[in-house]
Nucleic acid binder design. Sequence first.
DNA 1: ATTTTAGGAGTGCAAC
DNA 2: GTTGCACTCCTAAAAT
Lengths: 78, 78, 78, 78
Amino acid sequence: MAEATDDRLRLLIERVERLEEEKKGIGDDIRDVYAEAKAVGYDTKIMRQVVKLRKMRPDDRAEQDAILETYRAALGLL
Amino acid sequence: MAEATDDRLRLLIERVERLEEEKKGIGDDIRDVYAEAKAVGYDTKIMRQVVKLRKMRPDDRAEQDAILETYRAALGLL
Amino acid sequence: MAEATDDRLRLLIERVERLEEEKKGIGDDIRDVYAEAKAVGYDTKIMRQVVKLRKMRPDDRAEQDAILETYRAALGLL
Amino acid sequence: MAEATDDRLRLLIERVERLEEEKKGIGDDIRDVYAEAKAVGYDTKIMRQVVKLRKMRPDDRAEQDAILETYRAALGLL
DNA sequence: ATTTTAGGAGTGCAAC
DNA sequence: GTTGCACTCCTAAAAT
């Protein structure tokens, strides 16, 4: 029965590999978009920062609030 | 004409954002496959090692194996 | 000459191992201090947050500044 | 008597901070050892694997080895 | 047992 | 082209 087990494992790993290829393909697409942006004159470095900021905003806000709250609690003790 | 330019930039950024979401989704899918593998009893940490090994060129793989064997021997780990 | 090489490797690894033991020992000491603090009535969870905050402050400031600056740059473009 | 209490807390926190600095210093030392090893030609990534292996109980180590062999065999990586 | 945190490895971009 | 940097993910240790 080792063969059945082996096949199962092999199939799982091949699924992972296919997904990783897709993931890599999308990474290439992203690179292409930036290349296109650069070709028409945009600053891709700043574009990347903007993308990052738009992604970070909500969490960051929550995090900032948490830090402030902790500070208030700590000051109340110290 | 500043509006046309702004739109162009906005569209490029939105394309990047969509692609990044897709990329993240595939990352999640990969995680799911590993979760499934774990659920049927496979050791996912070792599976990841195997996936990495399969990505390597055969001679690189052989070299890594050889170095590891050498180090293990030097430390009495055989 | 493989023996000399092996020895060299073994010595390096033993140095790492000794250092890791020391590091672990200090981790235990830290745990002890918190245990002592707890024993005299302090809230160790908040103590840990305070320690973390005092460690983070400077970087955080710089990070905040960087984000603000990036935003300004982005707004100037968008 | 609030001052005595405050001092006590402050002293505890400062002890923790000193210990954490020491701990960080040792972490830096470990990094240095690896850097030194790399400089004389060792593969530090594999060294780290070996350090990890030495920390494991022999039977756990044997089991890991066996699983890896099995998976590699199943995927044609022997 | 669950969640958090620290550290390592791999990836991809930017600067020189 | 190569070095450094920032980001993502994974693992292992620690705290609750």
